[in-house]
């Protein structure tokens, strides 16, 4: 067990390492940076800019800069924000929490909806219920997430029942904790709903198709031949057997969900990583960009690790190989 998990952990670290390397190589190819944009500002002299470059180590070769960055990662700083003059991590940390606040409930709700519906659709394959789901998921897939987020804003504006974007009501910091929680939940409702609608369809479809593969297998036919009850067949026998590809999908669904979350954050002004990332791209605040992407990768790696643990728990074949 520990060996298997250590191996998966090592794999996750490797991905993090690969992504950081990739980002640095890309960044090397980039024309201009925050400091060279500064040159356009006539108030900053050539000498100051040069000194700043030296201070931040921007003038040094790639491996050196990568080494410096790694060192700052070890210190928990993730590099430096040129624009805010603070460590990148101090900018990112509260944002990550907000992103988690949005994506974790959305992830949970997505799966809680997708699995039973997918099982039901597979059990009544080709019947009206299945067709209804199939049409519904097609529509949801075809609907751009952007449009969904904008529609949510429209609903908020028209009905006045939901806040139009943001995370807290004005003055909420003075309220009691219960009122603050209620306020937060009220602000979360629409963004979470959009993220769920945007990511539930592919998962539902995958649940359906892996269930169908299992339901067509000879052991399910044998079990049916033994006279098991339908619900026992579906949820006790077929679902665990179909779980393997679904758990792998869990890791991927985290990635997908993070993408949708980013869009929703930007459109619905949720103070997560997304808006910060966008802002720092436009101002060429290099380390914040790298930090934001690295953090999203970290979330993904964690999601994959959870999937690995689940896989280990569910599939006896994995347990034996490990």
């Amino acid at each position: 067990m520990t060996r298997y998990l250590l191996r998966r952990l090592g794999h996750g670290l490797l991905i993090l390492f690969g992504v950081s390397l990739l980002l640095f190589i890309l960044q090397q190819a980039a024309p201009g940076d925050f400091l060279s944009d500064m040159k356009l500002n006539s108030q900053i002299s050539e000498g100051t800019a040069k000194a700043l470059r030296a201070q931040y180590g921007v003038d040094q070769p790639l491996p050196r800069r990568y080494g410096r960055w790694m060192l700052s990662v070890a210190k928990g700083e993730l590099g430096y924000s040129f624009a805010y003059n603070v460590s990148a991590s101090s900018l990112l940390a509260p944002r990550v929490l907000n992103t988690l606040l949005l994506s974790v409930p959305a992830l949970a709700i997505t799966w809680i909806i997708a699995v039973p519906l997918g099982v039901v659709a597979s059990a009544w394959r080709g019947r009206w219920l299945d067709r209804f789901f199939s049409a519904g998921t097609s529509l949801a897939l075809a609907m751009p997430d952007l449009l969904l987020a904008l529609l949510a804003i429209l609903i908020a504006l028209r009905t006045h029942r939901y806040p139009v974007g943001g995370m807290h009501s004005v003055g909420a910091q003075d309220w009691g904790w219960f009122a603050r929680m209620k306020d937060l939940g009220w602000h979360m409702a629409l963004p979470v709903a959009v993220v769920v609608i945007g990511s539930v369809s592919p998962i539902l479809r995958q649940v359906r198709s892996s269930m169908i593969a299992v339901l067509d297998s000879s052991y399910m036919r044998a079990a049916e031949g033994h006279g098991l009850r339908k619900w026992t067949l579906l949820f006790r026998h077929a679902l665990p057997a179909a779980a393997n590809p679904l758990i792998s999908l869990f890791g991927l669904s985290v990635a997908m969900l993070l993408s949708v979350t980013l869009l929703v954050e930007v459109v619905m002004s949720w103070p997560g990583i997304g808006p910060l990332l966008l802002e720092s791209i436009l101002s060429r605040d290099l380390f914040v960009v790298i930090g934001a992407v690295m953090l999203s990768t970290l979330l993904l790696v964690i999601g994959n690790l959870i999937a690995d643990v689940l896989l280990y728990a569910v599939d006896p074949r994995i347990r034996v190989q490990a």
């Binding site: 991905i15 201009g32 993070l258 980013l262 990332l277 966008l278 934001a292 992407v293 993904l300």
Partner: peptide, 22 residues
């Protein structure tokens, strides 16, 4: 390398690659 490209949240990847271009 391909695995990394597949595994990452595509929007983050897209934006970060775009970030380093003019």
């Amino acid at each position: 390398v391909g695995e990394i490209f597949i595994a990452l949240p595509w929007l983050y990847l897209l934006i970060s690659v775009r970030a380093f271009l003019p």
